[in-house]
Design a protein around this nucleic acid. Structure first.
Length: 505
RNA sequence: GGCCCGUUCGUCUAACGGUUAGGACAUCAGAUUUUCAUUCUGGUAAUAGGGGUUCGAUUCCCCUACGGGCUACCA
C-alpha cells in the first residue's frame, strides 16, 4: 500500500471560504491519520481571475488553523512546482497524446462563435450531437487541421466524450456513482493560451504528485466522469485516486450554497481571515478577527457534515485526527448556523487557561492605550474569560478594570437612594480603609456585617455598589471585582459616585 | 430544460430492520447568581408524501414532491 497523499487545490481568486477550510481540514485529518502527506497546490491556470495576494492569504489561513501542508509553493517538496502556472509546459504533451489516440481533438471555434452558437441554440452543448457542425479537427479533416495548426490558428483541445459509455466510480462518501458519458459535453482540456483547464490539470497533477485520495466539494461531481475518463486514457484506472465528494455548506436561511454575500447580509464571517480585495479595496471579515479560536473553528467545521457516532461534540484537532473517518461524512449539505458556531467558540474559550487568553487580552488593552501589569491582567482574565463568547468580547467585559467608568447607570440607583444608604456607604468607606487584608471573602464579610448594623438588605446596597465599581449592572461577582480593583481604587470609585448622587439631589 | 446528488425536531445530527426516535444549538419555563453572563433542572419540537418488500421500515426498493449542484477557453 502506497503512502497516503492528499491535496487541497484552491485557485487564488479571493478569500478562503468556510467550505474551503473544511475541505482542507478533512484532507489534513485524513493525511495525519494515515501517516501520509498533505499537499497544497495552487490552481492558478486562469490568468484573468488571478488575484495578487490571494495565495499568501490562503497560506496564512492554513497557518492560523494549524493545518500546515507538508508540501506547497512555500514549503517546497519533491513533486513541485506546486503552482500550476509554473507547470504550464507539462500539460501539452498529455493533451497531444489524447489527440493522437483519438480521445481528444483540436477545436478552432472562436469564443465569439461559441457565444453566438449558444445564443442561437438554446441549451447548446459541444458534444457528440453537435461536434460535427463545428470547426474542429474531427470535421475539418487531417489536412485542413494541419494547415490551420501550422498557421498558428488559435485553438483549444477538447476531450471527445464517448457516445455510449457508462462511467462508474466509487465515491468514498456516496458509494457507486454512474454517469452516461455522452451527457457531458466535450470539455476544453487545453486552452488557447496553452494553459490546461482544471479538468486536465487535476488529473495530470494528481498523477504526477502521486495523490492517492482526492477530496473536493460536491459541485465537482458532475464533471467527475470527465476526470475518470482522463485517468483511464492517460494513466490507467488502477492509478486513479479514491474520490470523495464532500457535501456543500449551505446558507442558514433559505437554500443554496453559502456565499460571502450571505455573511454580509446576516452579519457573520464566511472567510477564515479578514480579506481585502486588492482591486475594489472591499474588506470582508474573517473568523479570526471576529474573535474565534482556531481550535473552535476547526472543531465546528469538522462537525458540519461529520460526527463520530457518539454524543461528543467538542474535539481537539488531535482527537479529530484519531477519530475522523470519511465513511461517516454525510451526503447531504449542512446549513451553517452562526449561533452554534459561537457556542463552540465559547466552549473553547472556557477550556482555555488564563495563559491562552494573555495574548488576546494584551493586544486588546494595547488597542485601547492601556498599560497594565501582567499580574493584574491575569487576575482580570481569570474573572472575565468565561464570560466571553468571542475573544473580542474581552475588552467590553473587562474595561472597567482598567479605566474608571465613563458613565454610571444612575437611574437604577438614584430613585431609591436615601440618607440611610448614604450613611452606610460613608461608614463602609471608613471600614474598608481600615481593612488589613483585601480579598473578596473578607470584603464580603465586612460588607454584610455593616449591612446588618444598618438594618439594610443586600438588595438595597449591593446593586449600588456594583454600579459604583462597574458603571452598569453587569459583570462578575461584586466582591471579586473590588478585590481585583484594590483598596484605593474601590474606595475612590465609591466616593466618586456618591458625589454624583449628592449633586443630583 | 437535461444530467447528477440529496431529504430525521427551526438548525447540526444519532439510531446492526425491532428505541417511549436520542443528543446539541436555538427557544420557552423554573432554580442559582439579589445584576448580567455562566451553571443546573424541566418543557415544546422531527422521520416530506404515496406505494411496495418484511412478522416488523427512519433504516431496503420504486414513484411523486421538494431542495441543491452542474450544464464556460472559471475553478
Amino acid at each position: 500500500m502506497s503512502t497516503v497523499r492528499v491535496r487541497f487545490a484552491p485557485s487564488p481568486t479571493g478569500g478562503l471560504h468556510l467550505g474551503g477550510v473544511r475541505t482542507v481540514l478533512y484532507n489534513y485529518l485524513f493525511a495525519r491519520q494515515h501517516g501520509g502527506q498533505f499537499i497544497l497546490r495552487i490552481e492558478d491556470t486562469d490568468q484573468t481571475r488571478f488575484v495578487p495576494g490571494a495565495e499568501q492569504y490562503i497560506q496564512d489561513c492554513l497557518a492560523w488553523c494549524g493545518l500546515i501542508p507538508d508540501e506547497s509553493p512555500a514549503h517546497g517538496g519533491n513533486y513541485g512546482p506546486y503552482r500550476q502556472s509554473e507547470r504550464k509546459a507539462i500539460y501539452l504533451p498529455y493533451a497531444q497524446q489524447l489527440v493522437a489516440a483519438g480521445q481528444a481533438y483540436y477545436a478552432f471555434d472562436t469564443p465569439e462563435e461559441l457565444e453566438a452558437k449558444r445564443k442561437a441554440v438554446p441549451n447548446f452543448q459541444y458534444s457528440h450531437a453537435t461536434r460535427m457542425e463545428m470547426n474542429n479537427s474531427l470535421r475539418l479533416g487531417e489536412a485542413v487541421t494541419k494547415e490551420l495548426l501550422e498557421k498558428n490558428t488559435p485553438h483549444v483541445i477538447r476531450i471527445k466524450m464517448p457516445e455510449n459509455e457508462t462511467v462508474t466510480f466509487t465515491d468514498m462518501i456516496r458509494g457507486e456513482v454512474s454517469f452516461n458519458a455522452s451527457q457531458s459535453d466535450d470539455k476544453v482540456l487545453l486552452k488557447a493560451d496553452q494553459m490546461p483547464t482544471y479538468h486536465l490539470a487535476v488529473v495530470v497533477d494528481d498523477f504526477l504528485m502521486k495523490i492517492t485520495h482526492a477530496f473536493r466539494g460536491e459541485e465537482w461531481l458532475p464533471s467527475a466522469p470527465v476526470h475518470v475518463l482522463l485517468w483511464k486514457y492517460l494513466f490507467g484506472l488502477d492509478k486513479m485516486p479514491q474520490w470523495a465528494h464532500l457535501p456543500l455548506i449551505l446558507k442558514p436561511d433559505g437554500n443554496g450554497k453559502l456565499s460571502k454575500r450571505d455573511g454580509d447580509r446576516l452579519g457573520f464571517p464566511v472567510f477564515a481571515m479578514n480579506w481585502t480585495d486588492p482591486k475594489t479595496g472591499e474588506q470582508t471579515k474573517g473568523f479570526k478577527e471576529m474573535g474565534f479560536l482556531p481550535a473552535a473553528f476547526t472543531n465546528l467545521l469538522a462537525m458540519l457534515g461529520w460526527n463520530d457516532g457518539t454524543e461528543q461534540e467538542l474535539f481537539s484537532l488531535e482527537e479529530l485526527v484519531q477519530k475522523f473517518s470519511m465513511e461517516r461524512v454525510h451526503k447531504g449539505g449542512a446549513k451553517f448556523d452562526f449561533e452554534k458556531a459561537k457556542w463552540y467558540n465559547h466552549e473553547w474559550i472556557k477550556r482555555l487557561g488564563v495563559e491562552g487568553m494573555r495574548q488576546v487580552a494584551a493586544s486588546q488593552l494595547q488597542e485601547h492605550g492601556i498599560a497594565a501589569e501582567a499580574d493584574y491582567t491575569n487576575k482580570v482574565i481569570a474573572l472575565v474569560k468565561d464570560r466571553c463568547t468571542l475573544l473580542t468580547d474581552f475588552w467590553q467585559e473587562s474595561k472597567f478594570f482598567f479605566e474608571t467608568p465613563a458613565q454610571y447607570d444612575l437611574p437604577s440607583v438614584q430613585p431609591k437612594w436615601n440618607d440611610k444608604k448614604q450613611q452606610f456607604f460613608v461608614e463602609i468607606i471608613r471600614q474598608f480603609e481600615l481593612m488589613q487584608f483585601w480579598n473578596a471573602t473578607d470584603l464580603e464579610k465586612e460588607f454584610k456585617e455593616m449591612m446588618a448594623v444598618h438594618e439594610l438588605k443586600p438588595g438595597d446596597v449591593l446593586l449600588p455598589l456594583r454600579v459604583m465599581l462597574v458603571g452598569g449592572k453587569s459583570g462578575p461577582a461584586v466582591f471579586d471585582i473590588a478585590a481585583v480593583l484594590g483598596k484605593e481604587e474601590t474606595i475612590a470609585r465609591i466616593k466618586a459616585m456618591m458625589k454624583l448622587l449628592q449633586l443630583q439631589k
